[in-house]
């Protein structure tokens, strides 16, 4: 059983081969880790999966259908949601609005309903705001619903991005360094929240993260890339012992609480 599968995905930027034949499969309702040194191609993989980049070779299959090369909005509509490594919340909007805006599936009435403010519009707005508040509560942001998103601390903005992505009711959620900029208490809370997403909401999670203690404790399988190539895949225990992984990280020991950004 596979929900998301990459088959020999290539991506070239000018002369740089950013991804070379990367393949992996993510099982439904699993938590899948994607790690590698800075510049290994992890974010590029996310961009290929979500349609920001078109793959130069290979396939991306989601729920059995090819999604490689589809525009980002289509991919998101199919149920692949993501967060961004360099936080991209809608800064001038409130926290609640940030989440509501991703909920078109709950909002069936169109712009004409909004103009005349009919019952369908009021019902949709009500449903959106109820759902958005539920998600904010899951991520521990219910107290900040009315705050301007850009004014939140980094850690909260990252959690807001997760809540916003969940509003799409995704099957797969791609998290790009969600713990970056979080202190260890926040990171532990995040770990609990990620488990909750999978256990209670049934969302499959793909996690790019440099915080190794978080990755090792929360992921069931881990895929390691370096220089755009797969170098290992396995359970956390296997990855910890894998000679090529250790070599790739040599001089850059995997440690807890790393917050550096990928170049």
């Amino acid at each position: 059983m596979t929900l998301l599968a990459l088959e020999h995905v290539d991506k070239v930027f000018g002369g740089l081969r950013a991804l070379r034949g990367v393949s992996f499969e993510v099982a439904p309702k699993s938590i899948f880790g994607l790690i590698g040194p800075n510049g290994a191609g992890k974010t590029t993989l996310f961009n290929v999966v979500t349609g920001v980049y078109r793959p130069d070779g290979g396939h991306v299959r989601f729920d059995g259908a090819e999604i490689g090369g589809l525009p980002p909005a289509r991919v998101a509509g199919l149920g692949v949601a993501r967060t961004f490594q360099n936080i991209r919340v809608f800064r001038s909007m409130t926290v609640l609005e940030n989440v509501m805006v991703a909920g078109h599936k709950l909002h069936r009435s169109g712009v004409l309903s909004a103009i005349v403010r009919n019952t369908a519009h009021a019902n949709d707005e009500g449903a959106l705001s109820v759902r958005a508040r539920e998600l904010l509560e899951i991520l521990g942001l219910q107290g900040q619903a009315g705050d301007i998103a850009g004014s939140l601390p980094y850690g909260s903005q990252r959690r807001l991005e997760i809540a916003r992505a969940l509003m799409l009711a995704p099957k797969v959620l791609l998290l790009d360094e969600p713990a970056a900029g979080m202190n260890s208490t926040e990171a532990r809370e995040l770990e609990r929240q990620i488990r909750f997403l999978r256990d209670e909401l049934g969302v499959t999670v793909v996690l790019v993260e440099h915080n190794m203690s978080l990755v090792m404790s929360v992921c069931e399988r881990i895929h390691v890339v370096d220089h755009g190539e797969t170098i290992a895949e396995g359970t956390p225990a296997e990855i910890r012992e894998h000679p090529r992984v250790l070599a790739a990280y040599l001089g850059e020991e995997p440690s807890a609480g790393r917050t550096e950004r990928e170049a």
Binding site: R74, A76, R82, R88, S92, M93, V101, V111, A114, H121
Partner: peptide, 29 residues
């Protein structure tokens, strides 16, 4: 006003704030 303060208006503002994020949220930009 009614367009601006609605799901459509929020989506328009989202496009202004960050078009890439808006697309990632399935907003038909």
């Amino acid at each position: 006003r009614n367009v601006t303060f609605s799901q459509t208006g929020r989506s328009l503002i989202a496009i202004r704030e960050d078009e890439i994020a808006a697309e990632a949220m399935a907003i038909p930009t």
